[in-house]
């Protein structure tokens, strides 16, 4: 059967509480699918590539709408984001922009205005697309994901969550409830911090052929104190590259260091080829983009005094 465009029939539930949503998931198991914004799921359902018997709408659950910045004055804290927070809300929120500048830079790359008005932070992560910008950011920042089901709450690092294209560690009865993004800050005001997000897509708003991002801390001499970076679209899952980041610590980010980091990143990449980009092209883009985000993050750090 060649796909057409109307979804197969399904039953719909809009639970009032997260507990109720989890009960429905427990009851229907793999026959049920959660929907929040639905910006990726609904097209797949239209083509019947996804055909849940039950659709459980969690878009309005107040328990998934929270945004909490770490308390002032604390050193590294976490920024807590309810999985149901819409991308547009995150994009506009001044606390989020201040605490998570990398996510702020990633969000404009996600789809278009209309899709960001519906799409959620958690939904994008749970969908499990290797080229998803939010998923990449969560991996690079080493975010912690909170999954809940009727038996309680479990945690899993974003870096362990993505298993294969569109396959994650979430169980059929689990709901992604919260994402906890580490916030980089320190009492030492001499530390400079910068980040960058770049991607190549054929048109703006398309899925990235490859995306890359980095976040850095530099000492006043420009020596790297901390670095995290990663690649999207360059492997079956979003790829955080902590080992490459570690290699930069202690170094000045000159062209040689940047080039070596990019080479190390590409060595860890494992892209697929498709209609729009061959595997070789993706590998090449990965190298170029890692270099660019490291340069841009360094530039960003130089232009902003740490807070």
């Amino acid at each position: 059967m060649m796909p057409l465009m109307k979804a197969a029939p399904f039953a719909y539930a809009r639970p009032e509480t997260l507990a109720e949503a989890c009960s429905l998931l427990a009851e229907h198991g793999p026959d049920a699918k959660l929907i929040a914004g639905g910006q990726s799921l609904v097209p797949m359902m239209a083509m019947r590539l996804a055909r849940p018997a039950w659709l459980i709408d969690i878009a309005r659950l107040a328990e998934l709408q929270h945004l909490a910045a770490p308390a002032e004055g604390k050193a590294d804290g976490v920024f807590v984001v309810g999985a149901g927070v819409r991308q547009c809300v995150m994009e506009r929120d001044p606390r989020a922009r201040a605490s998570l500048p990398l996510l702020a830079k990633a969000l404009p790359w996600v789809g278009h205005v209309q899709t960001r008005n519906r799409g959620t932070i958690g939904g994008s992560i749970a969908h499990g697309d290797t080229s998803a910008e939010i998923a990449l950011t969560a991996c690079v920042l080493d975010a912690m994901l909170e999954l809940c089901d009727t038996s309680g709450v479990t945690e899993i690092p974003a870096r362990e969550f993505f298993l294969a294209p569109m396959v994650t560690a979430i169980l059929p009865e689990q709901c992604l409830a919260e994402i906890r993004f580490p916030v980089w800050r320190s009492a030492d005001k001499t530390i400079r911090r910068g980040c960058a997000f770049e991607e190549v897509s054929v048109r703006h708003g398309d899925f990235a052929l490859v995306s890359a991002c980095a976040q850095l801390e530099l000492d006043p001499d420009g020596r790297c104190l901390r670095a995290e970076l990663g690649l999207g679209g360059a492997a079956p899952t979003p790829l955080a590259l902590p080992e490459v980041g570690a290699q930069l610590v202690g170094a000045k980010l000159d062209e040689q260091a940047i080039s070596a980091a990019a080479a190390a990143a590409v060595a860890l990449a494992d892209p697929e080829g498709d209609l729009h980009a061959s595997a070789d092209y993706r590998r090449h883009l990965a190298r170029v983009l890692v270099e660019r985000v490291l340069r841009a993050a360094q530039q960003d750090a130089r232009s902003t005094v740490g807070t």
């Binding site: 465009m5 719909y12 809009r14 929907i35 639905g38 910006q39 609904v42 097209p43 239209a46 083509m47 659709l55 709408d57 878009a59 547009c88 278009h112 205005v113 209309q114 899709t115 008005n117 519906r118």
Partner: peptide, 26 residues
Amino acid sequence: EHGICGACSVLLDGEPVRSCIMYAVQ
């Protein structure tokens, strides 16, 4: 009908969304 072209855009509580990738029940 798969959320790319934008012809179906409407305002939902004042914000533009694509009405082809949203169910009426939502």
